[in-house]
Amino acid sequence: MSMNELIKNLRGIWARAYVRIVGVNREPSWLIFELFFPLLPICSFAFVYKSMNAPSDYLGFVILGGAMTAIWMNVLWGMAAQFFWERESGNLTLYMLCPMSTMAVLVGMALGSGFSTFFRVIITFMIGKLIFGITLHVASYFWLFATFILTIAAVFSLGMMMASFFLLYGRDAWNILTVFMEPVFFLSGFYFPVKTLGYPLGALASLIPITLGLDAMRQLAFKLGPDTAFLPVKTEILILVALSALYLAGAKYLLKKLEYIGRREGRLTLRWQ
């Protein structure tokens, strides 16, 4: 990619992110729907452990899983499925016409939601601390941060792969995406360590980057984390690096391929599918 291309794509990312940033500012109802309400099920799962008198680190596992829910939801609905709405509003056509990478549009969407997502993550941890008395025992801040960033990178790449299907499909892709809600919360161990699933199912679940990301972060952030480890942190980080690269390449390929098919079948501009 030439320097001009890079600058063009960076401008595109910022412009698309700007829409979300401004949206958050001008449409305060997001505070209710994207912050307050989503915190309630997280608290509910923490109360489940509390009602069983489980160790406070278990509540911490739920809080961390809940924080990652915000990121997963952002990727699913704020990025992947956003193309569904862009198509309905006629903007997808214009994005396709632009001389900018589709990936830049998607990254812009995800980063634009970054503020509200980050805010939700922070509030989740504050609730964990203030209501449930969670205490962190961080083994290495560097590796914790690195794991977090790697997980985000891999999840964003996976989200871009999912988004590519919205270039061809409408409501069907939207409905299928809902399968990545509770089943992923279950398989990736959002509310319990993935080790509980057993190794075969855990290995399968590791294809979802958040599974290993969560497991590694729990090991790095909580005292009881290493006792419930699925794989050693280093191994999980290596796999996350591989998954990030794999999904990024996959996203690039699929976005291009499915755009081509969309053009061939006349589905890029088809509304109310």
Binding site: S29, W30, I32, F33, E34, F37, P38, L39, L40, P41, C43, S44, F45, F47, V48, K50, S51, M73, L76, W77, G78, A81, Q82, W85, T178, M181
Partner: peptide, 22 residues
């Protein structure tokens, strides 16, 4: 419209307040 957050929102209210799972 806030993405698909309604489903989460709806879950949240009842999960926490009505004794669904605890």
């Amino acid at each position: 419209r806030h993405g698909n957050m309604m489903s989460e929102s709806v879950s949240g209210i009842f999960f926490i307040s009505c004794g669904v799972i605890f």
